[in-house]
Design a protein around this nucleic acid. Structure first.
Lengths: 85, 85, 85, 85
DNA sequence: AACGTTGAAATAGTTC
DNA sequence: GAACTATTTCAACGTT
C-alpha cells in the first residue's frame, strides 16, 4: 500500500484513465447492441425471444467447449496428445 | 410477428450474429479492464480505492451534466431560452 | 432443500405472506408519491424539474458518503485508523 | 409555470421533502423484504422459487379482479346492478 | 395508448 | 463460502 501515500499519483492516474476509456468503449458497444435490437424489433422480431436465443446459443457453445476440453483431457491421458500446450 | 414464421430467418440470423460479435467485444474489453486492475494492484494500488475514485469521478461528471440540464430547464421555463433545440 | 418437500409449507406461506404485505405497502407509497407530484403540478410546479432536483440532491448525498468512505479507506491504508470498526 | 420563478420555493421544498421521505420509506421496505428472503433461504427455501410463487399469486389475483370486473359489467348491462357506484 | 427511455432490483460471476 | 461487482432483467415514467 506504499504507492498510495503520495509516491506515484501519476501512475495511478494513468491506470484510472485507461480504465475509464475502456469503460466508455464498453458503453458505446452496449448502445450499438441496443440499436440492433431496436432495428430487429422494427423488422418484427421480438427482442425478448432474441435474447433467449442468444442465451441458448451461448450455453450450447459453452457445452461444446467443455466437451472438447474433456475430450482433450482423455486424449492426453491416453497418450494420444502431448501433455504440454 | 409475421417475420418469425419462416419468411426471414436469414435476417434474424444476421441480427443475432452481429449482436454476438459485439457482445464478444464487450467481454474482451471487460477482460482488459480486469487486467489493468491486476497490473495496478501489483504496483501497489488498491483496486477497491481505484473503484471508488472512478465512481466519484463518474458521479462528478454526471452531476455536472444534471446541473446544466436543470439550469437549462429553468431557463426554458422562464422563457429565457427557446423550447426547441 | 429439505424444507420444501412437505415438512414446512406453513413456514413458507408465512414468509410469502409477509413479503406480499410489504410489497403492498411499497405500492401504496409509490401511489402516494404519484399523488404528490400531481398536486405539485396543479400548484404550477413542473414534475420534470422536481425530479431533476430530487436526483441532484440524492447524488449530492451519495457523493458525500462516497467521499467519506474514500477518505476513510485512505486513512486506514496509511495506518491513521484502526482496520476494524 | 409561474410558481417556479421565485414565488413559492417553500411550497416546492415541502413537496420535495415529502417525496424524499416517502422514497426513504420505500427503500426501507425493500430492505425488509430482502431480509425476509434471506431468512427464508436460511430455512432452506429457494428465493428464486419464492419469487416465482409470488409472481404467480399476483397474476392470479389480477385475473380474479378482471373477471370480477367483467362480471360486474355484465350484471350492470343486464340491469342486475345499479349503474352508479 | 404504445413506445422508448431510464432507473431499480435480482442474478450471476468473481475475488478474497 | 462470503462479499462484492457487474450484467441482465424488469418495472415505471415520460413522451409522442
Amino acid at each position: 500500500m506504499t504507492a498510495v501515500g503520495g509516491i506515484a499519483p501519476d501512475i495511478l492516474k494513468q491506470y484510472i484513465e485507461r480504465i475509464e476509456r475502456l469503460e466508455l468503449e464498453k458503453m458505446q458497444i452496449t448502445e450499438n447492441i441496443r440499436d440492433i435490437f431496436a432495428a430487429a424489433k422494427i423488422d418484427g422480431f421480438d427482442p425478448k425471444v432474441m435474447r433467449q436465443v442468444i442465451k441458448i446459443r451461448k450455453m450450447d457453445a459453452q457445452e461444446r467447449n467443455e466437451q472438447e476440453a474433456l475430450l482433450d483431457t482423455y486424449q492426453k491421458a491416453l497418450g494420444m496428445l502431448p501433455d504440454f500446450e
